[in-house]
Amino acid sequence: MSHASGERAVPFHCPYCGDGDLWPGEEGHGAWECHSCLRAFSLRSLGLVRPQPAAPEAPR
């Protein structure tokens, strides 16, 4: 996540193998490496979404 305070979005599980042996990658902000399946991936925050108003219920 991109915050002014410099917080990182931290994944809890690898999106490929599901393991939690993750380490920050060398490619910079948002890059992660899974030491279980040896894949590298990146995370990027796209921002916040506005909640959608609930659709009105149909009369019964």
Rank of each mutant, 00 (worst) to 15 (best):
V10I: 13
H29D: 09
R8K: 14
L46F: 14
P53W: 02
S5G: 10
P59D: 14
E33W: 04
D19F: 06
S42W: 14
P24Y: 07
Q52C: 11
A54D: 12
G25L: 04
A40F: 06
G6C: 06
Q52K: 15
A4F: 11
C14T: 07
G47Y: 06
C14V: 01
S5F: 06
E57K: 13
P56R: 07
A55P: 05
Y16N: 13
L38I: 04
H29Q: 10
G18Q: 02
P56G: 03
G28S: 04
C34F: 06
L22M: 01
G6K: 05
P24H: 04
V49G: 13
F12N: 14
F12G: 15
G30C: 09
G6R: 07
S2A: 11
R8M: 09
H3E: 15
D19E: 13
E26G: 07
F41N: 10
A54G: 06
C37F: 07
P24I: 02
G6L: 01
A58D: 13
F41H: 06
S5M: 10
C17Y: 10
A58P: 11
E57I: 01
D19K: 06
A31Y: 08
L22G: 11
V10F: 02
H29V: 00
L43N: 02
C34A: 07
L43M: 15
M1K: 04
A58L: 05
S36K: 10
S42I: 00
Y16R: 12
E33G: 03
E57R: 14
Q52P: 02
P11Y: 03
E27W: 04
H3G: 11
A9Q: 11
D19S: 13
R39T: 09
A9T: 02
R50I: 02
S42E: 15
F41I: 01
R44G: 11
H29N: 00
Q52R: 15
G30P: 02
P56E: 11
R44Y: 10
G6W: 02
R60Y: 06
P11W: 03
A4S: 13
E26F: 05
